[in-house]
């Protein structure tokens, strides 16, 4: 037992009541996250001169590249939606739907990566893992604004499992970053595609779950004064 009466708790809660701004609509949060990602892609393209290869016919003729693009898109959308929806009690169906979609797409991506490795495409001149790290880091950099936006939304809401929600948000944001990287990168090496493109959301989700959870915690308003 907690040792205090419910009436005491009610009095304490009433004493501690402060005005709060209602959380933004989910669709507004999703649109904001997407807009920040687009801004990051445009800014990076403008600075580095690397733009998506959507204009190149060869990109559209490679079924594996398209399969990876599709997988990254679904992982990103599903994970971002699941993470944002987890901030709002009562939106569990959306969390489940987004999570299931992202999970299936993650398996799809792993399959694509294995196909890429098994396909035996020539690796880049730098070695087996050449360029993997640079693509992964590029994706993470592109993911930062979206990840921060999702974390801010989580801090305004009430996610049940903060660490898990942060990991999903990190995976979703990294999925967006990897999507942009995959569209700009012309490397075809199997290990490069597996590690530098396909696994980026999962790796980022695992690595950045804790830092984002700490950020969410720090940004969250104090629940109650002692």
């Amino acid at each position: 037992m907690t040792g205090r009466s419910t009436e005491d708790l009610v009095q304490q809660l009433v004493r501690n009541l402060r005005p709060v701004k209602p959380i933004a609509r989910l669709r507004v949060a999703a649109a904001g996250t997407l807009a920040l990602w687009i801004a990051a892609v445009v800014a990076t393209g403008w600075l580095t001169g690397t733009w998506p290869r959507f204009g190149e016919a060869v990109f559209w003729l490679d079924p594996l590249a398209l399969a990876i693009l599709l997988g990254l898109g679904v992982v990103a959308a599903g994970a971002v939606v699941a993470a944002l929806a987890s901030a709002v009690p009562g939106r569990e169906r959306l969390v489940r739907a987004g999570g299931i979609g992202a999970g299936i797409a993650a398996v799809w991506l792993i399959g694509c990566g294995i196909c890429a490795v098994g396909g035996g495409a020539a690796e880049s001149a730098g070695g087996l893992f050449a360029g993997c790290v640079s693509c992964l880091l590029h994706a993470v950099v592109l993911a930062i604004p979206a990840a921060l936006a999702a974390s801010f939304y989580l801090s305004r809401g009430a996610p049940r499992h903060r660490l898990f929600a942060s990991g999903v948000a990190a995976a979703g944001a990294a999925g967006l970053g990897a999507l942009a990287v995959h569209a700009t990168c012309s490397a075809v090496g199997g290990f490069h595609l597996l590690l530098g493109h396909c696994l980026t959301p999962m790796i980022a989700g695992l690595v950045f779950a804790l830092p984002l959870a700490v950020l969410v915690q720090r940004w969250s308003p104090a629940a109650i004064e002692p």
Binding site: K21, P22, R156, G157, A158, A223, I224
Partner: peptide
């Protein structure tokens, strides 16, 4: 639950 309602009151939309 009462404590959670207090903490999550900003997550409700009218």
């Amino acid at each position: 639950v009462l404590f959670s309602i207090h903490r999550a009151r900003g997550s409700y939309r009218a």
